[in-house]
């Protein structure tokens, strides 16, 4: 395992953080993921992914202001770091380069 490893679920979360840089927070990521994946997830799965990536230095976080929502708790917004972006790019490159090697397959019935 190299230390820049990125799990499948982590990658999805990281993509969403990148797409909604500075605005992404736990519940939002959860809802977007549920929408895209069309299945129910638990918030703690998202938390685990976010905290792991924070530790690895792929994302960083900052608190927002106090609002009336959420019983007065601040939101924690996530943004992608340059390392995170690099890992994401790498991952994307590897995938597309292999994907391009797939010959033109046809699956006629």
């Amino acid at each position: 395992m190299n230390e820049h490893s990125l799990g499948e679920f982590e990658e999805l979360v990281l993509l969403l953080v990148a797409a909604h840089n500075q605005e992404a927070y736990g519940v939002m990521i959860l809802e977007l993921l549920e929408q895209k994946l069309e299945r129910k997830l638990n918030i703690s799965a998202v938390h685990v992914a976010l905290k792991r990536m924070e530790k690895k230095g792929f994302v960083e976080s900052s608190y927002g202001g106090i609002t009336n929502e959420r019983g007065g708790r601040r939101k924690k917004y996530y943004s992608i770091t340059s390392l995170g972006k690099k890992v994401l790019d790498q991952q994307y490159q590897v995938r597309t380069s292999i994907y391009k090697q797939i010959p033109n397959l046809s699956f006629g019935q």
Partner: peptide, 8 residues
């Protein structure tokens, strides 16, 4: 605070 907020 983050977890609590999200859960609430």
């Amino acid at each position: 605070e983050e977890f609590e907020g999200d859960l609430i």
